[in-house]
Design a protein around this nucleic acid. Structure first.
Lengths: 147, 147
DNA sequence: TATTGTTATACTCTATAACTATA
DNA sequence: TATAGTTATAGAGTATAACAATA
């Protein structure tokens, strides 16, 4: 029974991932790039270094992702006013539109998935999931050996 | 509140993915390859075509994954006794050992994550998650437009 | 004719290492 | 000396298209 729940949770994991990938919108907008758009939309003006740290990837990787988004006309690089080594990232008008679409999509997704769950059950679900997040985070902390 | 639960669910999704990636074991054994190992372990003798369908990837992709696992000494290709076009896949002794390790790991994972949840709450959690799986599956069915 | 698997080619994500400009 | 970002290089996952062998 315990494993049964884990299996279902894994299934949710898999299906949610798959679902994110549909709904991406314009051609050229991949998952990794959409995530970058999401981060910049949430904190406009962040540097590439900050973005690399947020995403947990290398600066080199960010270079490529931002290059692509710039090419799609969704993101702009601007010189940092204080630090001439650094670059600030902003959404273009088009990028901001896409960002708003993601926000709306997320709202819709939440309603679809959880709209008809009662508040009590929702509270219970949140408690369970929160506990799971805690345990997974502890796992992640404990194992910093890398591969 | 509803979005709060969705956010937590997404966090679980992300952390579970990250967690799968640790615990892979031998160098060269990536997520995609481990999944192949898992499928073959569950249905030894399956053809590459069957595997491609199970994983939802192209046959070309399977060729590469099986090549890698063969190179690691975890999987064996054997001629299909009836159909000379097809290839049957089996785990080597080493691959079977790895497979058993995955099984044990999953058991441990389930215990860690859900071991101290009461049977009643476990049942409730399962109900909620099952409903979510249903909705996500319906979404996946409805949208077959591809990208 | 249809199916199974492969070769050829290309794109994306990711990493490490070396380098430039700046702090 | 340390930091921000880039170029160079490489491995891995994925896709489409063309092809050979077989059904």
């Amino acid at each position: 029974m315990r494993r049964d729940v884990l299996g279902t949770l894994m299934m949710v994991t898999k299906l949610m991932n798959a679902d994110m990938e549909r709904g991406l919108g314009p051609a050229g907008l991949t998952m990794a790039r959409a995530q970058v758009l999401w981060e910049i939309g949430g904190a406009p003006g962040m540097t590439q270094k900050m973005l690399a740290d947020r995403l947990g990837v290398t600066p080199r990787n960010v270079t490529g992702l931002v290059d692509a988004l710039e090419g799609l006309g969704l993101v702009e690089r601007k010189a940092h006013p204080q630090d001439r080594r650094a670059i600030q990232l902003f959404l273009t008008a088009s990028g901001a539109g896409q960002f708003r679409q993601f926000q709306a999509g997320q709202e819709q997704f939440a309603t679809l998935l959880l709209g008809d769950v009662s508040p009590e059950r929702l509270a219970g679900l949140r408690t369970e999931l929160h506990a799971i997040v805690g345990k997974l985070s502890a796992l992640a902390e404990g194992d910093q050996t890398g591969r």
